[in-house]
Simulated scan of single mutants.
Amino acid sequence: MYRYVFRRCLGALLVMWAVATLVFFMLRVVPGDPFAAMTFDAGDAQSIAALKDKLGYGQPVVVQYGKWLWHAVQGDLGNSIYGSRVPVNGMIAEAFPRTLSLATLSFLLALVIAIPAGLIAATRRNTPLDHGVTLVAFLGLSMPDFWLAILLIIFFAAGLQWLPAIGYAPLSDGFWPWLSHLIIPAVAAGTAFSAIIARMLRSALIEVLQTDYMRTARAKGLGARALLLGQALPNALIPVITVMGIAFALLMSSTVIVENVCAIKGLGRLLIQSILNRDYPAVQGAILVVSAIFVFSNLAVDLLYGLIDPRIRYVK
């Protein structure tokens, strides 16, 4: 087990290094020069070169890469090339808690909706309840998250004035201010994932309920609740957990549209703005964090397999 975790962590670090390396060199290959843009495209070649030297970008690309990688290994992701050259670590530290709060609340909301819906649909197959769950799931998948966010803002914020329309309040300001600012974006971001998880759970449960060992357990007189929750659900969770891990990683990295609609300066919004500005250090740092989220989410999912299903053993 420990050797397996060590190998996976080592592989995760290699993947993150490969992603960081690819992003580093691709940023310098794509058309456009941020240093020319910083001089409003009015500076001559000499002034642009002087600006590059001042910011440390006048050296060969390989030398820049070596210095950036050495500092990144030590936890220093560099400084933004714009304005007062804010440290990238500080930019990510400011944005990450907001995205983490939004992703966690969206994920929990998706599970609260998806698990009961999947159980109901699977145990009442081809009934009006099953068809209703399927219809709602398709509606949830069909609605763009930004459109749903706008509707929720119009109804609950502008109309009823129950919730704030935009912005973010840190948890240090109090639980309700923090939660109230996240309810609308969390519902908008989590609705589609709740539909995906519910459909996946329904399909997995239907398949498990038709197996021979479930028929045997039913014939031995095992109660319906114990049969469903104690036998069927754990065996059906293996493929569902995979989707859950991917869903959480996506929520951590792809809520940029909802963040923009609700004016939350999270990790996704930071990444998009950095890409538009061609802010090399900020893009490299943000993508490194996003890749770490995906890699270690997959690792956590693999480890959960063994906890849920004891039949799964890791190769020594």
Rank of each mutant, 00 (worst) to 15 (best):
F193H: 13
R202C: 02
L163K: 11
A122Y: 14
V256A: 08
N235C: 05
L227N: 08
Y280W: 08
R98Q: 11
A50T: 05
A188H: 07
A192S: 14
P128G: 04
D44E: 05
N89S: 05
V301H: 04
Q284W: 04
G223M: 09
Q59I: 09
A12F: 11
M26Y: 06
L51F: 01
K54Q: 14
N277Q: 11
A217Q: 13
R313Q: 13
Y4N: 04
A45P: 00
Y305T: 11
A137K: 11
G230H: 09
T242L: 03
F24N: 06
L271W: 01
A292Q: 07
G223N: 10
P170D: 15
A186E: 13
Q64C: 03
S203A: 15
V290P: 00
G32L: 00
L222P: 04
A49S: 09
A198Y: 09
P234V: 12
R85Q: 12
R98F: 07
V289T: 10
R218D: 07
L10A: 11
F296K: 02
A42P: 02
T242Y: 08
W70F: 07
E207D: 14
G285V: 10
L108D: 05
A292N: 05
P87D: 08
L108C: 06
G32K: 00
R311T: 08
Q74H: 13
F248H: 00
G32C: 00
Y57L: 01
N126E: 14
F146Y: 15
L303M: 14
G306S: 09
H131S: 08
A12C: 04
P164N: 10
A49L: 04
G32R: 00
P116T: 10
I48H: 00
D145A: 15
